[in-house]
Simulated scan of single mutants.
Amino acid sequence: MGIGLVDPILPSIAADLNATPTETELLFTSYLLVTGAMMFFTSWVSSRIGARWTLLVGLALIVVFATLAGFSGSVEAIIGFRAGWGLGNALFISTALATIVGAASGGSGAAIILYEAALGVGIAIGPLLGGLLGNVSWRGPFFGTAALMAIGLIAILVLLPKDADAAHRPAPAKLSAPFRALAIPALAVLAVVALLYNIGFFVLLAYTPFPLGFDAIGLGLTFCAWGISLAVTSVWVAPILTARMRRTTVLATVLPLLALDLVFAGVFVANPAVLVACVIVGGLLLGIMNTVLTESVMEATELPRSVASSAYSGVRFLGAAVAPPLATLLAEVGSAGLPYLVGAVSLVLSALVVVVFRTRLGRIDGGAPPDVVEAEAIGLGDAA
């Protein structure tokens, strides 16, 4: 739920703190840049202090920095506190699902189903709750996030056994392992694909609240529908497609469709009804992409999956960090629809990388299905 609480209040922050849209979008950039940088090191941290402590430290950081953001009096302060929030986010998302499955008594299959259901409901409800809180004050969603993460922290302290780490702690990872992993062609190709894909993703997610022009509740409802769409296709539609098609085929097909969706958003940016439709359709396509991309990373190499996750996530978050301020700058120098068109170009380039380097990705089209635990664990950051 905390993932989507802040999105509906971006225009309110800009208005109340006399900030430009680009300054406001830096809330995403500082958060995602630190998350991406720290993802290179999370496997090293969690393999040494254990998953339980990694989760607790991550949640504690989010509680502290979300609270400080709520008390802030300037957009610059919020940007700084969002960076600290990103550090906590990296620690939490890198270990959350693996810990849930490891601690479950009813088997991994049941735990994964429950986890996916909870994630889908949270992604959908978060923006709606953010809109309701943001309608009172732009500070509300920050305090709401802090409260949610505090509940999560207390739940881990009370319910997660202290000996869970001893039973499930992996062998210590080398600090350089994620960086060396990027020398493997298949992983490097997928990282570039994800970097370009995330530019289009975050143009749609982070920039759309400004041209849409809705109040906090309207934005909350819009992105609630987006979250439902993303959850449905990531959980149910993506597995159906990959059972019938190669993963590279799914990627090479869905990326151009997503680009076309952004072209429509750019052309009809002045029409709120069409723009809302593009957001919802985008959610359907993004859900497929998130699942298939993360599954592909898990199958691409023989590396430990925590190492592959760290390397891939570190690169892809760079695209996510660049996209929000780039979008508002493009809107200032060009037109309101230009960011969507540039995002569409980035998605087309991503599809071309898949097609041109398809021979390097042969491993992801065969073999046993990937472990859903690791695949979904790195997919969590895509909704951030």
Rank of each mutant, 00 (worst) to 15 (best):
C224S: 15
L221R: 14
V192C: 05
A252V: 00
D163Y: 01
G200D: 12
G218K: 11
L159T: 13
P209K: 07
D215I: 07
G200K: 10
P256V: 02
K162H: 13
D165R: 01
R246G: 08
L260M: 14
P185I: 13
R244A: 14
L157A: 13
W236N: 10
A171V: 12
S234N: 03
G200P: 12
P256E: 01
G213V: 11
D215S: 11
F179L: 08
R169D: 07
P256A: 00
K174T: 12
A206T: 12
V237W: 04
P256Y: 03
I184N: 13
T248L: 11
L221E: 10
Y207M: 07
A164C: 01
G200I: 13
T249Y: 08
L187F: 11
A177Q: 13
L205K: 04
F210K: 06
V192M: 09
I156E: 04
A171I: 04
C224I: 00
K162A: 14
T208W: 10
T253E: 06
N198A: 11
A167S: 14
G213H: 08
I217Q: 12
W226H: 09
I156T: 04
L258R: 08
A167C: 01
P209R: 07
F202E: 08
H168C: 02
I228C: 05
V203L: 12
R247T: 10
G227F: 02
S176K: 11
L258K: 06
K162I: 08
V235Q: 07
A183N: 06
L205M: 13
P211F: 09
F214K: 10
V193C: 05
A167L: 14
A206P: 06
K162V: 09
A216C: 07
